[in-house]
Write a protein that binds this DNA or RNA. Structure first.
Lengths: 139, 139
DNA sequence: CTGACTGCAAACGTTTTGCACGGTA
DNA sequence: TACCGTGCAAAACGTTTGCAGTCAG
C-alpha cells in the first residue's frame, strides 16, 4: 500500500507537503518536529511549522501516526505499525524498533497490578554498536 | 531517612516550600507540575510556578527526583527509587509502580539490537480495578 | 553574615489558532 | 465548484531567566 492510498483511506487530501512528510517518516522511521521541518525546507522553502503541526496532529488522530515519548528527549513520530519496543542510543540518538515477546511480563504486570492492561510503551536506553566502536578507538 | 536529611545530603537548604514539595511527592507518588502547584497553593498562597520549576529541576539534577514520561500525558515526577515499571489507568490516570523481572527481555533486546543497554522505561496502559468496577455498575 | 531561595515580571521556545489564499477532488 | 490544506501572523501555552528582597545555615 502506497502513501497516496494511505492518505485517501483516511479522508485526507493528497498534497505534495503531506506526501513528503509521509515519505520522510517512512524513510527515517522516527523523527521529531524540528528535524522534520529541517528535512522539508529544501523541497518546500515556504512550508510553515504550522502546517507540520496541523498534519502531525491530524495524522495522529487518524491513528496512522504514533507519538513516541523517549526519556529526556523530544517526542518523535513514526508511522503506526504492530506494537513494538524501542531502543535508543544516548550518544547519537539513533532509535531502532525491536519486536519482543512481552507476554510474560505483561501477564505478570496484570497479575501484580490487577489492572486490565492493553498497551505498553517500552524504551531501552544504551549505546549503539557504532558509538561503542568510536569509544574503543579513542582509548 | 527523612526529607530534611535527604535535602541536606544534596546540599540543598531546607525551606518550608521544599519540605512540602518533597512531602507531596512522597505521599502522591507521581504528580505533574500543575497538580503539584495546586496542591501547594493552600499552604503557600504566594508560591510561584517559577519556584516549583526551579526546585523540580535542581532535584532532578541531584538525581533524587525522576521524570516519568507517560504516552499522551503530561510528565510526572517521583522520588527516585530502584528501577521499576509503571502502570497507568487511562480512565482516572492513577499510576502505580510495579517491580518486574525484566532480565529476560532486556537480554533479548541486547541480543537483537547489539546495543549496550543500561536503563529501561516501561509503561503499561489499561484500566484500574476501581474504574473496571464502575463500568460494570453502569451496565 | 553570606550565599542560597523565593516570588515577581519579563523573556523565551514551542504549539495552536484565525484568516485569506490556493489547490485537490 | 466546494471544501480542505497551506502559509502567515498573532495568540496561547509552558518553561526559563533576571533581579530584588528574604531566609537558612
Amino acid at each position: 500500500m502506497n502513501y497516496i492510498t494511505i492518505l485517501q483511506n483516511h479522508n485526507l487530501k493528497v498534497t505534495p507537503q503531506r506526501l513528503e512528510i509521509v515519505d520522510i517518516l517512512y524513510k527515517n522511521g522516527h523523527i521529531n518536529i524540528d528535524d522534520l521541518y529541517k528535512s522539508l525546507q529544501s523541497k518546500f522553502p515556504s512550508l510553515s511549522l504550522a502546517t507540520i503541526y496541523k498534519n502531525i496532529n491530524t495524522m495522529c488522530e487518524k491513528l496512522f501516526l504514533s507519538e513516541v515519548k523517549i526519556p529526556h528527549k523530544k517526542n518523535v513520530y513514526e508511522l503506526s505499525k504492530k506494537e513494538h519496543s524501542h531502543v535508543i542510543c544516548s550518544k547519537c540518538n539513533t532509535i531502532i524498533d525491536i519486536n519482543l515477546d512481552i507476554s510474560t511480563i505483561l501477564n505478570k504486570a496484570k497479575q501484580i497490578s490487577k489492572f486490565n492492561l492493553n498497551t505498553s510503551s517500552i524504551v531501552f536506553n544504551g549505546i549503539c554498536p557504532n558509538c561503542l566502536d568510536k569509544k574503543e578507538n579513542l582509548s
